[in-house]
Amino acid sequence: MLNDITMGQYYPVDSPVHRLDPRIKLVDTLLFIVAVFLAQSFVGYLLLFGFLYGVTRLARVPFRMLLKGLKPLRIILILTFLLNLFFTPGEKTLVAFWGIRITLEALRQAAFYSLRLAFLVAGTSLLTLTTSPVALSDGIELLLSPLKKIHFPVHELAMMMTIALRFIPTLLEETDKIMKAQMARGADFESGNLIARAKAMVPLLVPLFVSAFRKAGDLAMAMESRCYHGGEGRTRMRVLKLTRNDGLALGAMLLLIALVVLEGVLL
């Protein structure tokens, strides 16, 4: 169970999409977001949906995994839909009750905006479903590396991400242990009102913080003893190389944008 949480959403299968360079996938995701905003009609959305569905199949990820990614956002989605539905002005009244008028324009806009949100989330889910957190942090580091020129701490950021990923399972294990130990002393984490429950967390959180700080101190010393001195003069064992497929992936995304724009102009 602990392992699930570590890997986040990552769906570990081997597919052409999984094998793509994480940099390309990050860029593609950004371009997809652009495409979503460029799409002006439901025909454009149909194109987006087709693309998303196709890539999901190619990635050998079950489509319901994408829908699962939408679940945490369902309240926002519904809210977006309802707000647009009730508060968009329009001409053609569909129904009217209790002084509220729902128009065709409102219905169209409500559907449009909530779908846009759904596309944004599904697109980024596809990235995290097909890219391991490690690859993702590598990709971010490399993409941001031009920022080093303006002294943006790119290397430090990436190192922090790696260490966080490394210690999440360890800290989860520790949480489980401390929780059990306090329960053996009669602690109750489950009953009581909100304040009582928050108070009950103290015996869990204090030891956890103490442990996290100790770990940080130990780790800093271990890293120093292994000659760590920041990003300066550092080399990497794993070097990302672009392949033909990466070019194809970028091309496909540009084609999608072109189609979406074209469709907007033509219709």
């Binding site: 957190p133 490690v134 790696t162 260490i163 990923l165 490394r166 360890t170 100790r214 770990k215 130990d218 780790l219 271990a222 890293m223 292994r226 000659c227 760590y228 001195h229 003069g233 550092r234 080399t235 990497r236 064992m237 794993r238 070097v239």
Partner: peptide, 26 residues
């Protein structure tokens, strides 16, 4: 503490950590 001295999320990358710091060619 075995947990508090491993930096990377994959074994071989952790082993490479020191080499990366020394700037050993890839």
């Amino acid at each position: 503490n075995p947990d508090n001295q491993i930096v990377a999320t994959v074994v071989k990358e952790d082993v490479a950590f020191g080499l990366e710091n020394l700037g050993v060619p890839t």
